[in-house]
């Protein structure tokens, strides 16, 4: 049917037909992108300059952006919470992933079992895991504090003390670093053992081998995880929503993350235009950070065979 249609439209060469078929094959994706990504993005950008409540649009110029920076007391609080969380979460999860991957790259007894155990949490997603962690972080009977008590440490009230709520979420994310670990592990497996043998012959210590061989060779994966980690950290939402019970960001606003405030503005206060403006500010921040990391990669990311040109 398409063949006839294409001929009728005057596409006669093979190359032209191939192009036309190419468009047919990408069409579902193209339609999806237009309808569900580009379209809503344009709409959200336009309504970020309006008083929009999902029922009516009234343009107010830069009012939403001015309110965000000058009048909204919760805006900076939520931004601060998100930045503090990201600063704790990104390095710890990245370093943790590398360390676990390196440990699981050794030839030890029960290696496959350990790898499976470390990877399992990353396939357990959703609200269930948050409730599981609420039990594990229980101040008196939770597993975390029971273990800490066994080694003589009085564990904190993880989810009720505002000073400990963000570290609690970082601990939870450390548990789920299997996804990152898998990527590192895949790369580690492809590093030829000759490099390490040669280094050993030259008298390099274990740390030197790690620092001079392993790290440079897995740096593209570190770079990838860092970018994904930055984007993910700034999008933290569910943890704040579920651990605070009612979406308020309690205790004492310590779990009021940026996206939780966006959600509250959009769906509780129906100030959707303002929420859209907040989204665009977040987009700008994440974009700037990503560009900085991207620019910095020339200094620390090692690509083999001259991949470093771009």
């Amino acid at each position: 049917m398409f063949s006839k249609l294409i001929t009728a439209l005057g596409v006669k060469t093979n190359r032209g037909r191939e192009t036309a078929y190419g468009y047919v094959f990408v069409l579902p994706w193209l339609v999806g992108l237009l309808c569900f990504t580009i379209g809503p993005m344009i709409f959200s950008f336009i309504t970020s300059f309006a008083d929009y409540n999902m029922r009516s649009v009234e343009f107010t110029g830069l009012n939403n952006y001015i309110k965000m920076f000058t009048r909204d007391q919760l805006f900076w609080k939520s931004f601060y919470n998100t930045v503090i969380y990201s600063v704790m979460n990104i390095p710890l999860v990245t370093i943790g992933g590398v360390i676990v991957a390196v440990l699981l790259n050794k030839t030890i007894f029960g290696l496959r079992t350990f790898r499976t155990i470390y990877y399992l949490p990353s396939i357990m997603v959703g609200v269930g895991t948050y409730f599981l962690w609420m039990l594990m972080l229980d101040p008196s009977n939770g597993l975390v504090n029971v273990i800490l008590k066994a080694i003589g440490i009085q564990g904190p009230a993880w989810l009720t003390d505002p000073a400990w709520t963000k570290p609690a979420i970082v601990v939870m994310h450390l548990w789920g670093l299997g996804g990152q670990m898998l990527l590192y592990l895949a790369r580690l497996q492809s590093i030829p053992s000759d490099y390490y043998e040669a280094a050993s012959l030259d008298g390099a210590s274990a740390f030197q081998k790690f620092y001079k061989i392993t790290v440079p060779l897995i740096s593209p994966i570190i770079f990838y995880n860092l970018v994904i980690g930055i984007i993910g950290s700034f999008q933290v939402f569910q943890e704040g929503y579920i651990f605070s019970g009612n979406g308020s960001g309690s205790p004492a606003g310590s779990l009021l993350f940026y996206n939780l405030l966006v959600w509250n503005n959009a769906f509780k206060n129906f100030d959707t235009g303002y929420a859209n403006a907040m989204c665009w500010f977040l987009f700008a921040v994440v974009m700037i950070l990503t560009v900085i990391v991207q620019k910095s990669q020339k200094k620390w990311v090692y690509y083999e065979e001259g991949d470093n040109d771009d």
Binding site: L5, I6, L9, G10, V11, T13, G16, T19, A20, Y23, V24, L27, L30, V31, L34
Partner: peptide, 20 residues
């Protein structure tokens, strides 16, 4: 040029058909 225009037209027609 003509070819490109017809391919674009084709793509647009498909999108419209999909929307309908």
């Amino acid at each position: 040029m003509k070819k490109r225009a017809s391919v674009l037209f084709l793509a647009a027609a498909m999108v419209l058909a999909a929307f309908s």
